[in-house]
Design a protein around this nucleic acid. Sequence first.
DNA 1: TTGGTTGGGTTAAACGTTTAAGTTAATGTT
DNA 2: AACATTAACTTAAACGTTTAACCCAACCAA
Lengths: 343, 343
Amino acid sequence: MNKTKLTLKDVAQQLGVSTATISNAFNRPDQLSKGKREEILAQCERIGYSGPNKAAQILRKGTSNIVALVLADSIAYMVSDPVASTFIKGVSTTLQQQGKHLLLYAGDSNSILDVVDFVDGFICYGAPRNYKLAQEIAAQSKPAITVDFDIDDVPSINIDNENAAYEVAKAAIDENDIVAILGLRLIDSPTTCRIYDSPLIDVNSSISHRRLDGYVRAAKELGIEINNEWIWHLPESDRSYARQAAKEVLMSSPRPNTVLCMSDIIALELLHSALAMGIDVPNELKITGFDGIEEADRARPHLTTVCQSSVAKGEAAAKALLAGEERKQILPFDLKLGETILS
Amino acid sequence: MNKTKLTLKDVAQQLGVSTATISNAFNRPDQLSKGKREEILAQCERIGYSGPNKAAQILRKGTSNIVALVLADSIAYMVSDPVASTFIKGVSTTLQQQGKHLLLYAGDSNSILDVVDFVDGFICYGAPRNYKLAQEIAAQSKPAITVDFDIDDVPSINIDNENAAYEVAKAAIDENDIVAILGLRLIDSPTTCRIYDSPLIDVNSSISHRRLDGYVRAAKELGIEINNEWIWHLPESDRSYARQAAKEVLMSSPRPNTVLCMSDIIALELLHSALAMGIDVPNELKITGFDGIEEADRARPHLTTVCQSSVAKGEAAAKALLAGEERKQILPFDLKLGETILS
DNA sequence: TTGGTTGGGTTAAACGTTTAAGTTAATGTT
DNA sequence: AACATTAACTTAAACGTTTAACCCAACCAA
């Protein structure tokens, strides 16, 4: 009923004890006789004091229980990507269990300056579109962890992308195949295109380049050289980019009969386009994906892909951050053979 | 290089001016001569002071630029629901434009006490699983807005669910049809089931009941009475719940030939199940959805549904909250006729 | 000259806590 | 009985800002 909210000081006065005692009643039970503590808590309940002000605690304690999840791209894009949103799922579950709060932070922002002072730590998911941001995070002194990319001296969560790509490619490619690759963020271009001789950008998304290496190694073992002409760049794992790339691949001549896709979304879009054109998968066209999203399971024929658990990544990242782990973790992946390749 | 971070006080001392002046240089340019301001900013840059500490600002100013988005359910569930994640998209885009930060808050939490002190406001999306939370939010004094449900005296964003349901039902139902409804959160049960005579819970999700009213009204106008036996309850708009309900509906006898679904996810699952069983849609079975998600567009036959823009809802909610709007808004919906009903 | 404004500052009191250090009385030890 | 220890509090100094209130010199009007 009071006009202004009760403060700890008010309460102390009303109960005739020091502010320290009230504070301790809430934060450090061991500093107080059990009886007094219960009495104080009961009185607080009665007069409507719900505990120390969190804003003041943040300043004084220097901790807020807020963890910033820095996404690779805008929040809007990330939240609709099945892989990213599954990752968020893992993070949020773990944070909630530990009483932490989740602040979503866009990876295309200029700076972390506006949150770094009150946030308890950073989880960086995927190389931020604005890579300067990642370096800023690495440079500041709060705990941080990266996922799906790496920065020197910052703990991280990754899978072995090179070997994963190698394995799925090895399973798919047969001798004398024409192999194409639908890649993600390989060069610095906002549109879908073949990479030809554009310089590869390694800084922005090393996982794509690891995967590329794996694909190329597998092909090479079968004596197949993948020309840059057969490598597409997509700026995002987005259906419309994928549709365009799919069209280009399927229209090109000679038409590739094995297409290695760096995400399931891309692979599924290619699969649909191919089926719509009456192309026989896998006999005329073999397709592999990457990620192992739910939708890949629902597709017919089942997509051959590399399963990685985004939930596990999210959980691992949150746990490692909160536990102050320093090491770089490599999580397992799982090759899933579907009917989009020949068995 | 200093061991400890620079404070505004340190800077003031070093530059030989008062703390107020430094503060004003950053926050209130008009309180300062232009020359001095630029000099101060330059000096700060030089000595590595990046501006006032945000945690201190939160306490002192009583504002943090953080907006809490309170989701109906756990963050994990919400983030994977296409409708909810699209809503988040709208919210985040608008918040980012205005320099605000997004804190995701789980609707199954016990209390908002742990954030209410530092958050600038609340956007409540869908009646929280723990409804007490919504009341707590309504009771406190920070700005708040609800979306897809209502609380007295709290501004809100909604569509006219009753009429939307009425229209889609009216379009779908023909004389002498047997009509079934696959509803969402109609009764208090954690499993998929027919509602029979279970008491409807109105408190937790009034939009479902509005929709139910609309369906029933449309049916009644054609002289059809929908028995509770033909109304299913699903605890969540989740594929596995939907699959089970779909099975039950399709197995029941007599088999309904019009099924009104309260979400597209449910409708799509029913559609797939029906097609897999060789049932002719729409001749043997008419289906309607609700929401207008992307996937509904990709389905064949195209789903008949009610389109509502979740992005627009998110944007409207964020804008209204930040602008301090008090009124309750009704957003438009859009009937989309696909081939899952007879034309 | 006098008195009123104004621009450009400064001072100092908040904002609402936490916590190291200090005080007291009661308990335990030899 | 003398002393050390402990339990249970209190005191007061932070934490790093913002901002109302005050001050002063310079300018202006009459």
